[in-house]
Write a protein that binds this DNA or RNA. Structure first.
Length: 518
DNA sequence: GCGCTAATAT
DNA sequence: AATATTAGCG
């Protein structure tokens, strides 16, 4: 489309749009009517809000827009606004001589789609039809003639194009909405609520992923296994994408650290690396009870044991990995591996055998509701080969969730900073390692990897394990976030604290506010 | 049609 | 900031 054409298109507006104008002041009303007429709207006027209301009630679907003064004796314009909003979902524009923000705010709060100041200018009135379009009231727009002539010759047919350069926010809305409008003719149609990934919902997600195995966990299957009403494949896909991003990031970080550790173990004499914190002199971390229950804020140390049995999560990667060796200065040397019991003793939700549904919370988000019997016995803990590690998966996932992973762009080069840092490090430059070579051998644990690589490689477990050590030692660069930070920042604030670890059913919501069921 | 990834929108 | 949607590809 040429610029001229675009300009033309912007200039078109519906002729005959049915406007109800309300103002107790006869003069104002007359002026308003005149101006609206000039805009080629079909205008009905009344000097009382009460009458306006009756007109609207008696002629449902006979008006497209209401423009009403605020200060009126019989009925406050806001009251009218409120009632109209309640009863017919028409776009209402408030008109007032008061520029007081309080008034404006009040209008906005009550659902006014615009707030015009007297005296009204015709330029403003020319634009008001867009509110109708925006309100998705296209059905009611059927009688409105959209001037569709995009030819360049007759631009002044409406005589209103002159001052359209300031058409500001509506530029491209027009055509799109026209096209879209036909499908969008249900006034009651509301935006789809978004899914709020509560801990519990995420737990279900994890259970499904765990059940399927990370490699085979695909949106559709996960969705089926989760068996959550109203959850869509797209929801799951989106979450899965984030999940994998987090995994990738953590793994890469861990790999970095593994590299460092490996180097460290062989070149311990290097002061440069010592400065970064080596892994010798491992201090054992208390693995006893309650790290997670103590609350993230108080948890100085990430529970190491959580992550070292990821074989269940990554079924194909664990066996080949050396772990907890005492020979040869291996990176995992000295790492305490807690008995499974310690981990399993923690209460965690048996999310796997239940069906839940999402309900709409007041903020228009879908939150996990309750449970019913599931038709998916396959997710029964007893039947899931991986279930016993769910707790640790869960914990691990806490870390993932708290990690602020950019959704795109930034992480396309995972850990570029750290990678560069490493390549520029003394170790690399001293020739102990060849950064290039490392880059060429990602399978060697030495460089960023693709998701596919990650899913197939044996690195994740070890990497995570090592990463834990790093974190535990406080050797994690501050910009990578402390463990506390990771755990703390994961879930939405409402859930970040107690809820984070309990696996209880609390959503951080006040359940009473969830009454608005679908 | 699905899944994946990245990019972009809401 | 967290999710959703879209595009391009296999």
């Amino acid at each position: 489309m040429t610029l001229e054409q675009d300009f033309e298109a912007v200039d078109q507006f519906p002729v005959g749009m049915r406007v109800l104008a309300v103002d107790d002041d006869q003069t104002c009303l007359r002026i308003l009517e005149t101006l609206l007429h000039r805009c080629q709207y079909h205008v009905t006027t009344t000097d009382s809000a009460q009458t306006a209301l009756e007109l609207l009630r008696e002629n449902k679907n006979k008006f497209d827009l209401v423009i009403s003064d605020v200060d009126m004796p019989d009925m406050d314009g806001f009251k009218l606004l409120e009632l109209v909003g309640l009863e017919m979902d028409l776009p209402v524009i408030m008109l007032s001589a008061h520029s007081d923000p309080k008034y404006v705010m009040k209008g906005v709060k009550h659902g006014a789609c615009d707030y015009l100041l007297k005296p009204v200018r015709i330029e403003e009135l020319k634009n008001i039809w867009q509110h109708v379009v925006r309100k998705s009231k296209f059905k009611k727009m059927k009688s409105i003639v959209i001037n569709d002539d995009h030819s360049q010759g007759n631009s002044d047919q409406n005589g209103v194009k002159a001052n359209r350069k300031r058409k500001d926010q509506f530029e491209e809305v027009e055509e799109e909405d026209e096209e879209r409008g036909n499908e969008n003719d249900d006034p009651t149609a509301q935006k789809k609520p978004r899914v709020l990934w509560t801990r519990e919902l995420h737990n279900k997600f994890l259970a499904a992923v765990d059940h399927l195995g990370v490699e085979k966990a695909q949106p559709k299957k996960i969705l089926e296994l989760m068996n959550v009403d109203k959850l869509t494949r797209e929801n799951v896909a989106s979450h899965l994408q984030k999940f994998r991003s987090a995994l990738k990031k953590i793994t890469n970080e861990a790999n970095q650290q593994a590299n460092m550790a490996a180097i460290d173990s062989h070149f311990m004499q290097m002061s440069a690396l010592k400065g970064l914190g080596g892994f010798h002199n491992q201090r054992q971390i208390p693995l006893g009870s309650g790290q997670f229950h103590g609350g993230a804020a108080t948890m100085r140390h990430y529970p190491l044991g959580r992550l070292n049995s990821f074989g269940g999560v990554f079924p194909h990667v664990s066996s080949s990995l050396p772990r907890n060796h005492n020979d040869g200065g291996y990176v995992l040397q000295g790492m305490p591996i807690p008995p499974l019991d310690d981990l399993n003793n923690k209460a965690f939700p048996s999310f796997t055998s239940q069906q839940s549904s999402l309900m709409v919370a007041p903020n228009n988000q879908l939150v996990l509701q309750g449970h019913q019997q599931s038709s998916y016995p396959s997710l029964n803990p007893g039947l899931s080969p991986h279930f016993e590690i769910n707790k640790r998966l869960d914990d691990w996932s806490n870390a993932l969730l708290s990690t602020n992973i950019p959704q795109s762009g930034v992480h396309s080069k995972p850990d570029a900073l750290e990678w560069n840092h490493f390549c520029n490090s003394d170790a690399a430059q001293a020739g102990f390692i060849d950064p290039l070579q490392m880059k060429q051998q990602p399978a060697n644990n030495l460089g960023p990897m693709t998701d596919a690589q990650l899913l197939r490689s044996s690195n994740p477990i070890e990497g995570l394990f090592v990463g834990q050590q790093k974190l535990e030692n406080g050797s994690m660069p501050s910009n990578a976030g402390s463990l506390d930070d990771i755990v703390n920042s994961m879930m939405p604030k409402e859930q970040s604290q107690a809820e984070l670890f309990e696996g209880d059913l609390g959503f951080g919501w006040h359940n009473s506010s969830l009454r608005t069921c679908i």
